[in-house]
């Protein structure tokens, strides 16, 4: 299948090194301590953060840091064909774990001993890159909840199809069977907290693809920071002196 045509245009009309349109909104779930909706093209997710709050299950309590829990779920209507997935299926369990570990790397858990933080992620529309979108949404929601973080985690995926590195794969490209790298980085500290790859890649190509994904992450981080700063300013001046 031809993923990049002769003019260098992808199936959805993007250039190989082009992100999909980003859209972030803070404060979408009124009951949560912090919440955000994040869109990357047609992928749309909602994140809600509850806590820091008292640990619900006493046996899980950690004396010197906070317990971080994460729940990822896909809405039944999120994909093209309506699949009935059980609540704890393998795929969502794995993604929950990955996101939890990624977020734990940036949350300063030692500041909130004996408490727990719940991150709930819901995919409303899946068009490839849900795990990246979820991480970005979770970052926004955590920042909204006022949870101290050492840096912003952003994530982006990149792939290698038709001998071209492609940024931010959509569903068709994702299921094209080519290699697919998902990278999560701490934006300012330049550290990698998440790196997943399906399929194999020669080393020199891998570096190209990874660099592309990191560039994508930086663009996303710039956008996220703008959104956060604007939101903070709005809250402050509405509150008044």
């Amino acid at each position: 299948m031809e993923f990049v045509n002769l003019q260098g245009i992808r199936l959805d009309g993007r250039r190989p090194k082009e992100l999909r349109q980003l859209c972030a909104e803070i404060g979408v779930v009124s009951k949560a301590d912090g919440s955000a909706a994040f869109e990357m093209g047609n992928t749309r997710v909602i994140a809600a953060v509850f806590g820091p709050r008292a640990v619900q299950n006493r046996s899980q309590k950690i004396a010197n840091r906070a317990l971080v829990r994460c729940e990822y779920s896909m809405a039944k209507f999120s994909t093209g064909d309506r699949v009935r997935r059980p609540k704890g299926d393998r795929r969502s369990m794995e993604i929950s774990l990955v996101i939890r570990q990624t977020m734990e790397a940036c949350i300063m858990t030692q500041l909130m001993p004996n408490s727990q933080i719940d991150i709930c992620l819901q995919v409303l529309q899946a068009d490839g890159g849900t795990r990246s979108a979820c991480i970005n949404a979770a970052t926004l929601a955590l920042a909204d909840a006022g949870i101290p973080m050492c840096d912003i985690v952003v994530s982006c995926s990149a792939g290698y199809l038709n001998t071209t590195p492609l940024l931010d794969l959509n569903y068709i490209e994702d299921s094209g069977g080519g290699p697919d790298v998902t990278v999560g980085i701490l934006a300012k500290m330049n550290k990698v907290t998440l790196l997943q790859m399906d399929n194999k890649l020669p080393f020199d190509t891998f570096e190209k693809v990874m660099q592309l994904a990191i560039d994508g992450c930086e663009a996303i981080s710039k956008y996220i920071r703008e959104v956060l700063l604007e939101n903070t300013k709005q809250l402050e001046y509405r509150r008044g002196l």
Partner: peptide, 9 residues
Amino acid sequence: PAAAVSVSD
């Protein structure tokens, strides 16, 4: 002017 900062500024 409002010295608003976001995470890791």
